[in-house]
């Protein structure tokens, strides 16, 4: 429940704040709208004013084997990274949130590190590391690099989710005769499934869109962000906007839906009962 404004002064403040909010959302979504708009612009060099609209660029984008090839590469690598980071993050986050461990601050530093480390620096460090394993350059290296970043994000997100999880669910199940494994299967997994899926999706989106680190360790592999980067250095074809706008809309939809779903689900399992 929000406090509804009462006095005229407060009502004025509310109106001003609402107007401001509209402007901020415009700022956040204007670039997205522009990309989508120019995906339909018939001119080969996009610009205002728009005269004819076409869906031709979408078809062009699908015909461009370089674009679709790198799109598929990105999808494939991001799925692997997302699976790996969810698998790494889930047990770690459970331990961090529920079990007493020694050197907790050191562990947290290791988790937080890849998030705060400038990605450029991580990329360079990995380049040096890969000198001793040159065979990994390319797809395996991209997966390794992305998993390093996304597993950190995933752990932090899951950790905060698990902190809010009512411990007594676990204790109640154990108390009724469920061993650790059974507790995990019967109680924890069903209750944290939404959080896991949302973390998987976020890890996927992050790995899918990451550019800098991938660029350094990619060798001759081209992910979609790398392809777009290359095209941005030349005159950019509207088919790139066409493909981008589809991906952006899908990304937005994924993050919107998965987050909303999680909010609804966590109400059930959180410590504070919201009635």
């Amino acid at each position: 429940m929000s406090a509804r404004p009462r006095s005229p002064q407060e009502r004025g403040g509310f109106a001003l704040l609402s107007l401001y909010a509209v402007l901020i959302y415009l700022f956040l979504y204007l670039p997205i709208a522009v990309i989508v708009l120019f995906a339909f612009d018939a001119k080969p060099i996009p610009g205002l004013p728009l005269d004819t609209l076409t869906t031709g660029w979408f078809v062009e984008a699908l015909r461009d084997q370089k674009l679709t090839g790198s799109l598929l590469t990105s999808l494939r690598l991001a799925v692997v990274s997302a699976i790996l980071s969810t698998l790494l993050a889930m047990p770690a986050a459970m331990v961090l949130a529920w079990l007493p461990i020694r050197f907790k601050s050191l562990v947290m530093a290791m988790v937080l590190g890849p998030v705060v480390l400038p990605q450029l620096v991580l990329g360079l460090g990995l380049v040096i590391l890969l000198r001793s394993a040159p065979d990994l350059v390319g797809e395996p290296a991209i997966i390794l690099a992305h998993t390093t970043i996304t597993s950190s994000y995933a752990t932090l997100i899951l950790y905060s989710r698990f902190l809010g999880f009512r411990r007594s669910y676990i204790e109640a199940a154990m108390n009724l005769g469920a061993s650790e494994l059974v507790v995990f299967r019967e109680v924890i997994l069903p209750l944290v499934r939404p959080a896991l899926i949302s973390v998987f999706m976020l890890a996927f989106t992050d790995a899918f869109g990451e550019f800098v680190v991938a660029w350094f360790v990619a060798g001759f592999t081209e992910t979609l962000p790398i392809t777009i980067w290359t095209s941005l250095r030349q005159v950019i074809s509207p088919k790139v906007y066409a493909l981008s706008s589809v991906i952006i809309l899908v990304t937005l939809a994924i993050s919107l839906v998965s987050q909303l779903w999680v909010i609804r689900q966590t109400r059930l399992t959180s410590k504070v009962q919201t009635s």
Binding site: R166, Y169, E171, N175, L176, A178, V182, V187, L268, T269
Partner: peptide
């Protein structure tokens, strides 16, 4: 002895009824 190997049963303060 682990909790699940003890012949006790507990009524929790917050009940801890499984919401799913």
């Amino acid at each position: 002895l682990a909790p699940y190997k003890r012949d006790t049963a507990m009524v929790f303060q917050d009940y801890a009824l499984f919401p799913h």
